[in-house]
Design a protein around this nucleic acid. Structure first.
Lengths: 182, 182
DNA sequence: ACATTTACATGATGGCGATCATATTTAGAT
DNA sequence: ATCTAAATATGATCGCCATCATGTAAATGT
């Protein structure tokens, strides 16, 4: 049945929302179009009214989360602490899209890759702006190096099936990044 | 047709070899059992004579590469440089299995996850041993922090479809890690 | 040499998932 | 109020892939 203009817009938003969570949680390949639609409270049939393909959904949901994800602009120390927390490690579905998608982006379409590169660019810039006490070169190095360490640590922590070692990776990386910023 | 005992052992080794390269290059899901067998010069039928399932192949090929991968034990500076090089970024198929698999391991079987955790543990130890000038706590922090930054940087560099930014991520992370070790 | 076992090949099978076809219902225009 | 177009639902289709069934030939033990 047809729905109102706003209802359709909200359906679309919900599809993107739910898709980005499912993708972060289970990976692009492990999530079917039908599963996304069901999680959005719809059936699979309407999908191609909103998106031209699953690849299109991936690209748009990527752009959607990356636009929403604005962490790192304020108190950098607090951001690093929450980023490298067990809570973030254990919440892939709602967590940082970079940590969730970076490794999988290699296998996606050029459009999806562009969206990701753009998100990374602005994230690095945001972190750099939160380091005003450094000169330009140091700021760039700290922003990129810290970001690489943070993303790498969360990915490693999620990979490790030994809680003690996983926690240690987060904790030591936090100390490592803190030391670098001091 | 039956083949000699050694021939079979070599076939098995070649399957593992080729599988680990294909998996690193394209991801676990994107590689079919038939594709692995073909790349090993065989047909799909013989597969279940060697492995009980595709998951079993994943686990064994993981153990296979992780056992072979012994970088980071010698000259740490040189290892970091080659790890954070464009050559390594562009050679996922033959590159570090941690960078290749870390993010995907979350979705694999417990056996595969264990194999990965074991590989990570020994890699962290190897890097720590290459930092003899530091005391135990600093060594642990440097080993884990540097390793997280290295893995994160390669994953990010591979994700970014802009050669200049991708190169910059590698280069700045190299400087960041170097600065930490100085 | 022969028998037997076995590694691999060829050829199903069954399920899942992306995409398409068609029906249905109702919002929005007149 | 009616008509039309659009948004979803239901129900195919088609291909890919993991896994299994069966055939074949060569290695190995006797």
């Amino acid at each position: 049945m047809k729905v109102s203009r706003e209802q359709m817009a909200e359906n679309r938003r919900r599809i993107l929302e739910v898709a980005s969570r499912l993708f972060r949680d289970k990976g692009f390949d492990a999530v079917s179009v039908a599963e996304v639609m069901k999680a959005a409270g719809l059936t699979h049939g309407g999908f191609y009214g909103h998106f031209s393909s699953k690849d299109d959904l991936i690209t748009q949901s990527l752009a959607h989360v990356l636009a929403a994800d604005e962490g790192g602009g304020g108190d950098l120390r607090a951001y690093v602490n929450s980023y490298l927390s067990p809570g973030h490690r254990d919440n892939a579905a709602g967590g940082c899209p970079t940590a969730g998608f970076a490794a999988a982006i290699r296998h996606q379409t050029p459009a999806a890759r562009s969206a990701m590169a753009e998100g990374l660019r602005s994230q690095i810039d945001r972190i750099g702006k939160a380091l005003p006490q450094l000169d330009a070169a140091d700021r760039r190095r700290m922003a990129i190096g810290s970001w690489a360490a943070m993303v790498g640590a969360v990915i490693l922590a999620r990979a490790i099936d030994d809680p003690a070692l996983s926690d240690e990776v987060l904790e030591e990386t936090r100390a490592f990044v803190d030391a670098g910023m001091a």
